Computed example of a mutant assay.
Amino acid sequence: MADVSPIDLQKALKGAQYPASRDDLVSLARGNGADDSLVQKLSGASTDRFDGPDDVQKVAFGNG
């Protein structure tokens, strides 16, 4: 998955409360049934904390 759509990311992170740690978002995404490749990209993000969904899109996925 080179890019993730904002809709897929929104579904994966439904219920997230920001700021949030990378580990919390990875667990939430798994619990929300996110695609494995989305979870892997999120877990490999270069930061440990995200201020909001736009931050996740930009930092973890390089778009948005």
Rank of each mutant, 00 (worst) to 15 (best):
D23F: 02
D36E: 14
N32V: 02
S27N: 11
G62I: 08
F61L: 10
L25T: 00
K11F: 06
V4H: 07
N63V: 12
S5Y: 03
A2Y: 14
M1D: 13
A20N: 12
M1A: 15
D55L: 03
V59I: 15
L38A: 10
L25F: 03
R22C: 01
A60N: 00
G15T: 05
D35K: 15
G62S: 08
D36P: 15
G62R: 09
V59R: 15
G33D: 02
G62P: 10
L13K: 01
D51M: 13
Q57Y: 02
S21T: 13
D36F: 02
Q40Y: 04
G64N: 10
V39T: 08
P6G: 06
D35S: 11
F61D: 05
G31M: 02
Y18Q: 09
Q17M: 03
F61V: 02
V4S: 04
S27D: 12
A29H: 04
T47E: 13
G33V: 11
S43V: 04
A12V: 03
P6M: 05
Q40C: 04
N32A: 01
G62A: 08
G15M: 11
D51Y: 12
T47D: 14
S27L: 09
K58Y: 06
V59S: 11
L28V: 02
D8F: 02
A16D: 12
D35L: 10
A12T: 12
R49L: 14
A2V: 14
A16I: 11
Q57I: 01
P53F: 00
D8W: 12
D54G: 14
R22M: 05
T47Q: 15
N32Y: 08
L13H: 08
L42S: 03
V56H: 04
K41M: 15
G15W: 07
D3R: 15
Y18W: 11
F50A: 10
M1H: 14
G64H: 08
V4D: 05
N63M: 12
P19S: 12
N32S: 14
Q17F: 03
A16G: 14
G44K: 11
G64V: 04
F50E: 07
F50C: 11
V39R: 05
S21M: 04
G33I: 05
P53N: 08
A16Q: 13
K11W: 06
F50V: 13
S43H: 03
Q10S: 00
Q57R: 14
R30N: 08
M1V: 10
N63K: 15
P19H: 09
F61K: 08
V39N: 03
A29K: 02
F50L: 14
A45K: 00
R49I: 12
G52C: 12
S27F: 09
S21L: 00
R22D: 03
D36C: 01
V4F: 08
S43N: 00
D54H: 10
D36L: 06
F61N: 10
Y18G: 08
P6K: 03
V56S: 06
A29D: 05
D35C: 06
D24E: 15
N32F: 09
Q17H: 11
R22G: 02
L25D: 04
Q40G: 07
P6F: 05
D51R: 15
G62C: 01
Q40I: 06
A45W: 01
V26K: 00
L25R: 01
K11L: 06
Y18I: 01
V26M: 03
